[in-house]
Computed example of a mutant assay.
Amino acid sequence: MTDQELQRRCHTVFPGHRARSPAEMYAAMAAWCEANGVEHDMYGAGSLIQEFEAKIARLLGFEAAVFCISGTMAQVTALRLACQDRGRDLVALHPTSHIFVHERSNYQLLGHFKALQAGDRHRPWQVADLAAIPDRLGAVGMELPLREIGGQLSSWEELHAIKDHVRARGAHLHMDGARLWEAACGYGKPLHEVASGFDSAYVSLYKGVGGLGGAMLAGSREFVERAAEWFRRQGGNVIHRSPYVVAAAMQFDERLAAMPDYLGRTHFLHEALGAHPGIRRNPAAPQANMLHLHLSVSPERALEIRRALAERHGIWMFNRIASGVLPGTSSFELYVGDNLLAMPDEQLRTALGLFADALARQ
């Protein structure tokens, strides 16, 4: 039995939102399209997509936004244009930036820009991390929250100091807002207040939102129009974007409204984990509705435990597992969504207890 098949049979699933089968997802999309009179766009022209782009721009406080088939394409395009505008090809990024960790050196191999790592990979940026860079920067890319360190955020005061610093040195400040919806909830601030001071921002339409894929890039109207032209030049001009937009738009408001509940549930989970010192939590207190959990077993052993819990108890604890820094350790990311929100407290505690007991039996 594959992992996917095994997970579908589990009644206690920790990560994310409930996975819908293709048939369920397409049926929900069809019903929403029927109820809202949706028609396909043609290469991005159509009322549905253009109204959704305008909605995203309004929420973030920008002049305009445009759909892009992937965040990977959106971000490197935005940073390259920003560098061109300033005649400086150097971009400062956190060491755990998605561009460094997951994008296979695209910025370098495709000649988009040059990048340097700024700051400590184990903590969010402080303004001193950027002030220590003597070079003339074309752009600064800032991820909110930082996924690779458990969803941590720079403090609200530090975020403002970073915005002021980047503006003063004449660089473009771009936001990797793949999880901006979660970050705004963590800050307890409206989206436009978090985005204020950024020159551009990318947001995901599938991560916390639960869509099929796709992204939006927001900024000034002129900047967004230039980026859209480069999306076309890079092969992003798909004839119909409507499937991606429908999958996001039909649940967008509901997902954003649930963010405070997801964060509250993350605090409950964090507290429940305190009873199991063998499972170490990062960060020390939740800053968004996600955590990284560190285990004193190898990835291979963690996968054995996951399968045993799924087969014997119907419990699915995590999806991906990674090697830890120390030998024989591992860690995984846990995004708190509908699954944990709907789970009764005692069921959650029981599952954690079974998981902790299995980890202790090495």
Rank of each mutant, 00 (worst) to 15 (best):
R136L: 11
D129L: 03
C83K: 12
P299Q: 05
A78F: 05
S154L: 11
H165K: 01
L348G: 01
E304P: 03
A178S: 02
H192P: 00
L130A: 12
Q50E: 15
Y202G: 08
A351M: 05
D129V: 02
G138L: 11
V76Y: 01
E103M: 13
I99K: 00
E148C: 13
A228Q: 13
D357C: 06
E271M: 14
E158N: 14
R169Y: 13
L293S: 07
T96G: 05
E148G: 06
H98K: 14
E311D: 04
G314I: 12
I69E: 10
A45K: 09
Y244P: 03
E333N: 01
M216V: 05
Y43E: 06
D261W: 02
R255M: 13
L205H: 07
R307S: 10
R121N: 03
L326W: 00
L303N: 11
V297R: 13
C68Y: 10
Q287A: 04
Y206F: 08
E311W: 03
A54W: 09
A31L: 03
L159N: 12
S331C: 00
E182I: 08
S97A: 09
L191G: 02
Y43D: 04
I133Q: 13
P190N: 11
M73S: 08
V246L: 00
L273M: 01
G71K: 03
L354I: 06
A132Q: 09
S200W: 05
R232W: 01
G46A: 08
L326E: 02
Q287N: 04
H192E: 01
W156K: 11
S331M: 00
G150T: 15
A28Y: 00
S204M: 07
